[in-house]
Amino acid sequence: MALDNDTRLNSLGFAKPPADTRVVVAMSGGVDSSVVAAKLAEEGYDVVGVTLQLYDHGAALAKKGACCAGIDIHDARRVAEDMGFPHYVLDYENIFKDAVIDEFADSYLAGATPVPCIRCNERVKFKDLLETARDLEADCMATGHYIQRKIGENGPELHCAADANRDQSYFLFSTTPEQLDYLRFPLGHLPSKDATRELAAKYGLSVADKPDSQDICFVPNGNYASVIEKLRPGAAEPGQIVDTDGRVLGEHNGVIHYTIGQRRGLGIGGLEDPLYVVKLDVDTKQVIVGPKSMLSTRTIPVREINWLGDEALASRPEWEISVKVRSTRPPRTAIIRPLSDTEAEVELLTAEEGISPGQACVFYETEGSRILGGGWIWKGR
């Protein structure tokens, strides 16, 4: 028996015409979110564009390569005007500072390697902005992330993007089932970024050739240390570079200038074997260096786990999964042993180098594209 036209689902999964379906599009001003908004507008949806002002963009007007700066707000507004849908700019500076920037500074000072883009998605875009979308009586919220939402036996599931080179699952592991029910990701199935730019050209968008953002939005040119010094004056205090036996090998001008696994820029040449940063001791202001072998890790303590599997995490003593410990590395086979619903020990079958507290450990099916959640790497007990 054929479905009645009124009961067929539209492209966003609702049993009503696009014109009766309101969707809030989170618009950064880049090509990805602009294409999402234009595509949905062309399909006849009731589109509302929202751009977040996350920090003082007055100083960033001429800064390219970061989202949510002044030029990006202008670009998002222009796309909305060209496509004929309303656009709002919301001042989220205080929320962003409290939820993302302050933790970034504090964790970096504690010797961790934070990933603020994950916290921004978790605490700002998929929390406060999502609630704003509900307040606007939107049926759903759409973003330009490269990730797929698929309907499984138990409801919406999170899956990797079709284009592995653009996949953003590492930055979205903390998306909860409730958020996933409300979110849509219209670009996740596209084969490449070129396909996105072709759509931008098709819609005549002014941002069609706009470069991708590369840096963390509030960290110009990737210079973490300069940002931390501004946020936490006096943080760049000098100290000693020592080996694992405590021998002093040199001096440094602040722990914040170093990261786990770093080799270059240590200023301790003349040694037979190359040395790498293996530990940062903020309390003693020491940068500890050692051989590359000391960077290898197989056991990772993980906490604040967001689990997206069908069965409860703690329902089994262990799970065989794949994990990513860096956004740029492919998933590796691992065993996860739950300690509670939000804490676990992850054992990598093959050791990884340069794993640092503050990074995310993201869980994947061993076969297939589904993301099973993830958590935050910490120092352990």
Rank of each mutant, 00 (worst) to 15 (best):
D4V: 09
N10C: 10
K16F: 09
P18D: 10
A19H: 12
V23M: 05
A26Q: 01
G29F: 02
G29Y: 03
D32K: 00
A37M: 07
V47F: 08
V48W: 02
V50W: 00
L54S: 04
A66G: 06
G70S: 13
I73D: 01
I73S: 06
E81T: 14
M83E: 11
E93Y: 10
I95T: 15
V100G: 13
D102T: 13
D106E: 15
D106A: 09
L109F: 08
A110W: 05
C120T: 13
V124C: 09
F126C: 01
L130R: 00
L130F: 03
L130W: 05
D135T: 15
D139W: 06
I151N: 14
E153I: 06
D163I: 03
R166S: 15
F171Q: 10
S174T: 13
T175N: 02
Q179M: 12
L180P: 02
H189E: 15
S192C: 10
K193A: 02
G204K: 01
Q214L: 08
I216S: 04
I216G: 03
P220A: 12
I228S: 03
L231Q: 05
G234I: 09
A235Q: 00
I241R: 11
V242R: 12
V248T: 04
G250C: 01
H252Y: 09
Q262G: 02
L266C: 07
P274E: 11
L275F: 14
V277Y: 03
V289T: 11
S296R: 15
S296C: 04
R303A: 08
N306R: 08
N306P: 01
W307A: 02
S315I: 03
R316W: 00
P317M: 10
V323G: 00
S327E: 13
R337N: 14
E343Q: 15
A344I: 05
T350S: 13
G354D: 14
G358M: 08
T366W: 00
I371P: 06
L372R: 06
G375V: 03
